[in-house]
């Protein structure tokens, strides 16, 4: 495999790993809140989290480019923090991927929390476990298949990331040129052999990821 393909694959996996890590940190509490809250904001929050599923990546990419640019509020904030601007950087891709893949991680976890019902927590409370204690020793272990499913889906979706990266990445080798963009470049330059090789690797990985999802959910109907 040519070196530039390997570089793009390595970058893709680094992006997917970092994104999945951030998604779990943010997604588990968010899913927990969505599953437990009776706030009237629940519907709005749920809709916002799910929005990227139906939003074209170009729409998200376009707005992120404007928001994170020098005239956008996010761009002005990151500059004020001394971080510079996010477009054309690895950090920018992580931010974009986290926003875009949030629903794929939050929904399975939220479903898992909702499926277990209130009973386990009530039992834990009657045994004098604090709510935090109950969350870590009862809720999290019970929701494990949902959390793993969310992680696999988030990872696999980020590996296949294309549209948003194309809009805000700038196609920089080793920094923002991920595998899917590399495939697109190869096809445009009519380098079909290289495109095939990379595409086959992504196809195989996606299949393995889906197998993992089905394995994790083998005892129930998959809601993903």
């Amino acid at each position: 495999m040519p070196e530039e393909s390997l570089v793009s694959l390595a970058l893709t996996f680094r992006l997917a790993a970092v994104t999945t890590f951030v998604l779990l940190l943010a997604g588990v509490p968010l899913a927990w809140w969505l599953s437990q809250t009776r706030s009237r904001w629940r519907g709005v929050a749920g809709a916002l989290v799910t929005l990227p599923v139906v939003l074209p990546p170009t729409v998200l990419g376009f707005y992120l480019l404007l928001l994170m640019g020098p005239h956008g509020p996010v761009g002005q904030f990151t500059r004020w923090m001394g971080l510079g601007l996010l477009p054309f950087t690895f950090a920018g891709l992580v931010v974009a991927s986290v926003i875009q893949k949030l629903p794929f991680v939050v929904q399975p976890i939220q479903n898992a929390f909702e499926a277990m019902g209130r009973r386990p927590l009530e039992v834990a409370a009657s045994l004098r476990a604090s709510p935090l204690d109950a969350f870590f020793t009862v809720a999290l272990p019970l929701a494990r298949p949902g959390i793993l499913t969310g992680a696999v889906l988030g990872f696999a979706h980020t590996v296949g990331e294309f549209g948003v990266v194309l809009m805000i990445g700038g196609n920089i080798p080793g920094v923002t040129r991920v595998a899917a963009v590399q495939i697109y470049n190869h096809v445009e330059a009519m380098e079909y052999a290289q495109a095939h090789l990379l595409a086959a690797v992504l196809l195989l990985l996606s299949f393995i990821a889906m197998q993992a999802v089905y394995f994790l959910n083998r005892n129930k109907v998959v809601v993903a």
Partner: peptide, 20 residues
């Protein structure tokens, strides 16, 4: 320092939005 647009239209967008 080079950032690449997929076409000259996208390149123009990178510059007109001030990101480059």
């Amino acid at each position: 320092k080079l950032v690449q647009g997929e076409s000259i239209a996208q390149t123009h967008q990178f510059v007109s939005s001030g990101n480059a």
